[in-house]
Amino acid sequence: MDELELLKKDWKKQDAGYKQLTSNEIYPILQKKSSSIVKTLFYISIAELVFWTLINCIPFFTSGSYRERLDEIYSDTLVITGLTIISYGVILLFIYLLFKSYKAICVIDNAKKLMESILKTRKIIKYYVIYNLVMAFISMVIAMYLAILHNSELSHAIEKLNNKQLFIFFGIIILFTGVFVLLIWLFYRLIYGLLLKRLNRNYKELKKLEV
């Protein structure tokens, strides 16, 4: 006899073996909160949006001297207004895309489609993180450059450096910024890697069936 047929025969006999929940036991379950990966993903994405928005805003709102320095450095108001509009536009765009992709996650879709919807959402969060890290890298390098340019003591010190020393100086700045950004990126990879490990494995398995 086919092994699975043998199993099927027994499988059907087992129906009586499960502890039957009464309706009184089912009602309280409905009030409980889900701990699904979609919910976790949702909280992480909200946390990321808030985190990066705060990172960008807090120093500006809390420190008067920082604001003055920024005003001094970015005296070109047209550029700064343009950049602000773009950065808020990007945040709004990501919020819209995230909302849309969350709405698309539907538990009654087939297994493959459900996995794809979740992975698409994860991709949007990933792009948001990449965008922020790239912006962080660029703005850190520019900020350092501008800080040096506007600080007469530092400027004088740098003027005394020869070309090779100057090259090493900027090389170190870029390297440190790069390492910092890379560490944040690895941290994200770890969080999502752990959260979506099983989903990725199962999705690969389903995709393998199509080959």
Binding site: S35, I37, V107, I108, D109, A111, L114, L199
Partner: peptide, 12 residues
């Protein structure tokens, strides 16, 4: 469908 989707994909 919902049961399997939860077990395979959503369940943490």
């Amino acid at each position: 469908r919902v049961g399997l989707n939860t077990a395979i994909t959503l369940y943490r």
